Amino acid sequence: MKSRRHVIVVGAGIIGASVAWHLAEAGARVTVLDAQEPGGIATRVSWAWINASFGNPEPYFRLRRHAMQEWHRLAAAVPGVGLARTGSLFWGRPPAELEAFAAEHGAWGYGVRSVSRAEAAAIEPHLVSPPEMAVHVAEEGVVEPLVAAQAILAGAQHLGATVIAHRRVRSLICAGNRVTGVDTDSGLLQADEVVVAGGVGSSRILATADVSLPMRTSPGLVVATAPHPPTLNGLLITPTMELRQTTEGRFLAVGEIEDGQAEGRVDESASELFAAVKGMVDTGSTLAPGTHAVAYRSIPRDGFPAVGRTAGLLGLYAAVTHSGITLAPAIGQFAAEELLTGQRNPLLAPYGMGRFAAQDQSST
């Protein structure tokens, strides 16, 4: 799949980083542009759960499971990615739903099993009140998202890619039915292909070429404590929060928050979430608060990835999704293959850009 096609990747979060690395590894000439520091916006505050768990129709499960496997290949090829197979303990749904999830995904070949209160306590000995019933998936894991994204970008640079920070893309450049480059706040850049992987900003960029990508944003409150000695073994998905401990020892909790809450209420919610962490895990009296932020997740309207070309417009490719941490290796791999060979992987079949127009037509 060797090629010297010049591809501009707009966005240096985890998806853009993976696309860039796979393209550079295949021999393409790659330029990555980001309006801010490389590492992305949503990526920096991601909880970074690598999984194929819960609520997935089977085609989406297959894509996510493939991505989980690709993480191991990518981590072996790129120094510093820091993939950790920690396992997860999940009791964020009623017991009947958890049992149904375990049965369904288990039948699909996922390593999920139901565990009792005693087993949950053995998996996570520092839980104050282990759940009566949970599901455990040993093969799930995590990366530190900013560290991983920057390591992948560094790997792409080692392969010859150029990464340019603080270069905002104003618009796509079109000539007839082809995108030929981008207009940035520092001038025009030409390319054979442009990949838009700008997360929440992707809709704005695509709209400059009259391409519609309907998006919705889902805010989440992210609370990080001060560093604490190792206490948790893996990831916890509970009825009130998602919780893990970072490689620095910080407890990282994600809770729901209403869109548009006033700043004062955000601070109050962060204090409540920190208190909930202290109530869930036995940390003694030494756990101290750290920082908090509201993260806006970039989600295509129907909740599934938007990856591929748009009808009638050459030279343009979109790679936008929620669950970017899980899906990044697969999307990077498949996007590079499609851009350089024209071959689209069957696992991407349901997730092309054309489905949104079809959805709009069916709703009228």
Rank of each mutant, 00 (worst) to 15 (best):
A77G: 08
T162P: 02
T341Y: 07
M241P: 03
D282V: 09
F101G: 12
G16M: 06
G198I: 02
I14N: 01
V254D: 05
V223P: 01
G27A: 09
G39Y: 09
E119H: 04
P59E: 10
L316F: 00
Q150M: 14
A77I: 04
A154M: 04
C174N: 02
Q359V: 10
A67S: 14
S186P: 03
Q69G: 15
L252Q: 10
E124G: 11
T231Y: 06
L63A: 03
P227V: 14
V81C: 10
V281G: 03
Q343G: 09
L347C: 06
N56F: 14
Y317K: 01
D282S: 12
I257W: 08
E124M: 06
G342V: 07
M353P: 00
V169T: 03
F334I: 02
N56D: 15
M215F: 04
P130I: 08
G312K: 11
V194R: 00
P38Q: 06
P38S: 12
Q190P: 06
A35W: 01
G176C: 03
L23D: 01
A175F: 05
I14F: 01
A335H: 05
M133T: 14
F274D: 11
H72V: 13
T247Q: 13
P38T: 03
I15Q: 08
H136F: 15
A28E: 03
A275K: 11
L314Q: 13
R297K: 11
T31I: 01
P239S: 11
T364E: 15
V112H: 01
G106T: 07
D185K: 02
A161D: 00
G342E: 08
A288S: 15
P57W: 08
P38F: 11
F61A: 14
G255M: 03
L74P: 05
A191G: 10
E144G: 08
V281N: 02
K2C: 09
T341P: 09
A328P: 03
G55C: 09
G160L: 08
M133V: 15
L287C: 05
A357K: 10
H105C: 05
P346D: 13
Y60E: 13
G16L: 00
L89T: 04
A191Q: 05
L83F: 11
P214G: 04
G80A: 09
L221S: 08
R168K: 12
P79V: 07
Q359N: 11
L89W: 04
A24R: 02
V169E: 00
H136T: 09
W21A: 07
G199S: 08
R170A: 02
V307L: 08
L236I: 03
T184M: 05
Q261A: 14
W108E: 05
T162H: 11
P125V: 06
G40F: 01
D360Y: 12
A253K: 04
D192N: 09
S186Y: 11
T225R: 04
S298A: 15
R44L: 14
Y60D: 10
L188P: 12
G354M: 03
I257E: 10
A262R: 13
A148L: 07
A358C: 07
A276F: 10
I331E: 00
A161W: 00
G354I: 10
M241H: 13
A24I: 05
G255N: 04
P227G: 10
A318N: 03
A175K: 13
A226P: 07
Q36A: 15
S285D: 15
Y110H: 15
Q343P: 00
